[in-house]
């Protein structure tokens, strides 16, 4: 954009008042702000000893998990919507014919490259059956690249680990009466969800 572009609105700088020109009042104002913050409550915590509190786990985007349904089976129907939605292309699904009668396909393998993932939450929003979710686990570490590629078992184990602390979001939302956005909770046949 050129400086001569008429779309630019040029603002006149407000002239300094006498207090501002005398400088010292602002000097002490700045100093008092600094001093106040110096003794105020700290916003950071001593991390490994003290866990940070997550304000709202429902909107926190940490490590992924693959949810299980009531029968303990993987909830995913291998529709590839999450892999399609993923901007980082970190989800790899191999689908095969489902052994169960209530769906056609299920993922034979389901891997997420956590090093590639940008934790945008698109997969969660794209999933029609609420199978993939982002938990509030925030310390994702590993010693090798291979270790950071999570397969189906690992993702399911994340669910087992976190299901008590964090129930499935669809259920939480339904219980809280907050299902005004997104598809009807719990219905596997719901359409593409998450346009909010």
């Amino acid at each position: 954009m050129k400086p001569t572009d008429p779309a630019i609105t040029w603002l006149e700088e407000k002239p300094l008042g006498l207090t501002e020109r005398l400088y010292l009042p602002l000097f002490f104002q700045g100093l008092s702000t600094t001093a106040r913050h110096m003794v105020s409550r700290k916003v950071t915590v001593n991390y490994p000893e003290v866990r940070p509190t997550i304000g709202n786990p429902l909107i926190y985007r940490g490590v992924h998990r693959l949810n299980r349904d009531d029968a303990g089976r993987v909830k995913c129907v291998a529709c590839f919507l999450c892999a399609t939605a993923c901007p980082a292309h970190c989800i790899d699904i191999v689908a095969t014919e489902s052994p169960w009668p209530d769906r056609e396909k299920y993922p034979e393998s389901f891997t997420i490259d956590e090093l590639r993932c940008i934790f945008c939450g698109m997969c969660e929003e794209a999933c029609p059956v609420d199978a993939i979710e982002l938990t509030s686990l925030l310390d994702l570490t590993g010693k090798s690249r291979e270790e950071m590629i999570f397969d189906k078992e690992k993702l399911l184990s994340v669910y087992d680990m976190t299901k008590d602390a964090e129930p499935m979001k669809s259920k939480t939302l339904a219980a809280g009466g907050m299902a005004t956005f997104g598809p009807a909770p719990g219905s596997p046949a719901a359409g593409a969800g998450g346009h909010h």
Partner: peptide, 24 residues
């Protein structure tokens, strides 16, 4: 001295660069 310095400080300064030609 402080008051005089404050009162005679210009209330706004002209900071626009002197351009010999349009940089764009």
């Amino acid at each position: 001295g402080w008051l005089v310095a404050g009162v005679f400080t210009p209330s706004g300064t002209d900071n626009t660069p002197i351009l010999t030609h349009d940089p764009l």
